[in-house]
Amino acid sequence: MSSVIQEVASTRRAASERRKGDGRMAALFLAPWFAGLFLITAGPMAASLYLSFTDYDLLSAPAWVGLDNYTRMFEDPRLLQSLQVTFTYVFVSVPLQLAAALALALVLDKGMRGLALYRSVYYLPSLLGGSVAIAILWRQIFGADGLVNQVLALLGIEGTGWVSHPDHALNTLIILNVWTFGAPMVIFLAGLRQIPRMYYEAASIDGAGPVRRFWSITVPMLTPIVFFNLVLQVINAFQNFTQAFVVSGGNGGPADSTLLYTLYLYRKGFADLDMGYASAMAWFLLLIIGGMTLVNFLASKYWVHYDD
Results as ranks from 00 to 15, higher is better:
6 Q>E: 15
8 V>M: 09
10 S>H: 11
12 R>H: 08
14 A>S: 10
16 S>V: 02
18 R>T: 14
22 D>T: 11
23 G>A: 03
24 R>Q: 10
29 F>G: 06
29 F>P: 01
35 A>E: 05
37 L>G: 09
38 F>M: 07
42 A>W: 05
44 P>Q: 08
48 S>P: 01
54 T>E: 02
60 S>N: 13
67 L>N: 06
72 R>S: 14
74 F>G: 12
76 D>V: 03
82 S>H: 05
85 V>P: 03
94 V>K: 01
97 Q>V: 03
99 A>Y: 03
100 A>C: 11
103 A>G: 15
117 L>H: 12
118 Y>Q: 05
127 L>I: 15
128 L>Q: 10
133 A>N: 08
134 I>Y: 13
136 I>S: 10
137 L>P: 01
138 W>G: 09
139 R>M: 04
140 Q>F: 14
140 Q>R: 06
142 F>W: 14
143 G>L: 02
148 V>N: 07
149 N>A: 11
151 V>C: 08
156 G>Y: 09
160 T>E: 13
160 T>M: 14
161 G>P: 02
163 V>F: 07
167 D>S: 15
171 N>A: 14
171 N>Q: 12
172 T>R: 05
176 L>C: 04
177 N>H: 11
177 N>K: 11
181 F>Q: 09
193 R>Q: 15
195 I>A: 12
198 M>K: 07
200 Y>T: 13
200 Y>F: 15
205 I>D: 07
205 I>V: 15
209 G>V: 05
214 F>G: 10
222 L>A: 07
223 T>M: 06
225 I>R: 10
229 N>A: 07
231 V>R: 01
238 F>A: 04
238 F>N: 01
241 F>C: 02
250 G>P: 04
251 N>G: 06
252 G>I: 03
259 L>Y: 12
260 L>V: 15
260 L>K: 04
266 Y>P: 01
268 K>N: 14
268 K>S: 13
268 K>V: 12
270 F>G: 11
272 D>F: 14
274 D>P: 00
285 L>V: 00
286 L>H: 00
290 G>F: 00
290 G>Q: 01
293 T>F: 00
302 Y>R: 08
303 W>Q: 01
305 H>D: 06
305 H>E: 12
308 D>P: 09
